[in-house]
Amino acid sequence: MPTTTISGRTLEVNEEGFLVHPDDWTEDLGVELARLIGIEMTEAHWVPIRFLRTDHAAMGETPTLRRVSTQTGIDVKTLFGLFPKKPAKKMAYVAGLPKPKGCV
């Protein structure tokens, strides 16, 4: 398994660069992960990211874009605006979680 160094920490990542261990994640690390993919975190970004963290902890899997939208009340269009082009994958990356497995 490859490793990468972010904010001075050596972290295990998968072949695509996603963190392998959700417990490695902190909000400070989230800021840095977002910066690496060209996103500056604002409070609007944090709402879905915090939901991803709590939902993953409760359900054992990364929520899909639709689930993030229905559970947080943030519409899909806004999520595309916050995390352009690939919101589900980008949110998962910033939250230090695996890509969502669901189709919808």
Binding site: P2, T3, T4, T5, I6, V13, E16, G17, F18, L36, I37, K85, K86, K89, K90, Y93
Partner: peptide, 17 residues
């Protein structure tokens, strides 16, 4: 090694571009 590994980030925008 650090320089190489620091740059290891998912290539999100490849297909989009």
């Amino acid at each position: 090694q650090v320089n190489e590994e620091t740059s290891f980030v998912p290539s999100f925008d490849d297909e989009a571009e």
